[in-house]
Amino acid sequence: MRRLMVTIGVIGCGWHSRATHGPCLKQYKETIGGVCLAACCDVDEEAAEAYRADFGFERAYGSFTQMLESEQLDAVWVIVPEQLTVPISLQVMDTGVAVFLEKPPGIHTADVIALQEQAENRSIRHRVAFNRRFVPMTNLLIDKLRGQAQDNQIYSITYDMIRINRKDADFSTTAIHAIDAAKYIAGSEYAELRFRYDDLSGIAPGLINIMADGFFRNGVRVKLNCYPHSGSARETVTVRGEGFSYELHLPLLESPNSFAGLICSEKGKVAIIPEEQEWTTAFGFYDENASFLDALKSGGHLMHDLSSSIQSVAVMAAIRNRAETYLG
């Protein structure tokens, strides 16, 4: 059913929400329209008020339950720490409105399944915000791989996630981006993974390097390398195949002067396609918001739902538990 106006509420006005979703929602309202930025909330009421003023929301709250009771919303963005995503999202779903969930949608696979069942039972339209799926260069890479797959074999996908001075005791909630994006690019679920870890607890409690190798169900080999405490900030995907090699360099805020774009090597010929769009668009944030709003307004099909994130969360949980293997 087509809606003339979608009324939006946002739960969570912290750094990530301010850097990504707030600007994207404001941009969508100003350029496309058809949305009302009705309310935002945060336990830090000053942060909520600043978010309201900066991005054009009408009201700010210090309690999400008060916001849900007071506002007539069509959709709610849940942008909170991962341990709060499930309980808050379930309460939002109880109101019957559409839900936009930041990643990871749960800490455990059972969490995601519970959310999915609630969404199915109540016919809740929703999206999980894995922004790498919406990166324009990611989708250009996928288009090129589809063209190659007709005639040439894809050998392997290597995903390198390198960061500077990250000391997270649980880096798996960031590594899930590599887990999910590699799967998305492959167009296949994982069949098996073998994990190795470097113990870096001498630097910070719980800190590890994460390495995994294995296969997707379509037979393509995969390697994941996550180094949170290294000498550079970069995120690259290398796809090798019969007569071709592609290198995707993602645009990180931590490394603004590094090359971002796609390097295509085909039978010895090299083409370099630089990413020239503004960061929130180049890193997929704008489109993950805009396409969700477009679908809510038009009543069109919604992709990137909870069911598509279950295996990514399962692999993330395996890493958190320091598993040696994962079988899909």
Rank of each mutant, 00 (worst) to 15 (best):
L4W: 13
L4V: 12
T7W: 03
I8K: 09
T20V: 10
T31L: 02
G34F: 11
V35G: 00
V35Y: 02
A38E: 14
D44Y: 02
E46I: 15
A47S: 14
R52P: 01
E58N: 03
R59D: 06
A60K: 03
Y61I: 13
Q66T: 15
L68A: 05
S70W: 01
S70C: 14
L73Y: 13
L73K: 11
L73S: 09
A75P: 06
W77L: 11
V78W: 14
I79W: 00
V80Y: 10
P81R: 11
P81G: 09
A98I: 07
A98N: 09
K103A: 04
K103T: 06
K103I: 04
G106N: 11
H108F: 04
D111S: 08
E117Q: 14
Q118S: 15
Q118M: 13
N121T: 10
N121R: 10
S123V: 06
I124V: 13
R127Q: 12
N131F: 11
R133D: 03
V135G: 02
P136G: 14
M137C: 05
N139H: 02
Q153N: 02
Y155W: 11
Y155C: 08
R163P: 00
K167V: 13
S172N: 10
H177Q: 06
H177K: 05
A186Y: 08
A186P: 05
G187N: 12
F195L: 07
Y197S: 09
L200K: 14
P205Y: 06
N209C: 07
R217L: 01
R217Q: 12
N218C: 12
G219N: 02
V220S: 01
K223Y: 05
T236F: 01
Y246Q: 06
H249A: 07
L250Q: 10
P251D: 03
L253N: 07
G261M: 01
I263W: 04
V270N: 04
I272C: 07
E275M: 13
E276C: 10
A282M: 12
A282T: 14
F285S: 09
Y286A: 08
D287M: 07
A290Y: 05
L296S: 06
S298V: 06
S298L: 10
H304S: 08
D305C: 09
L306V: 09
L306N: 10
S312M: 01
A314C: 05
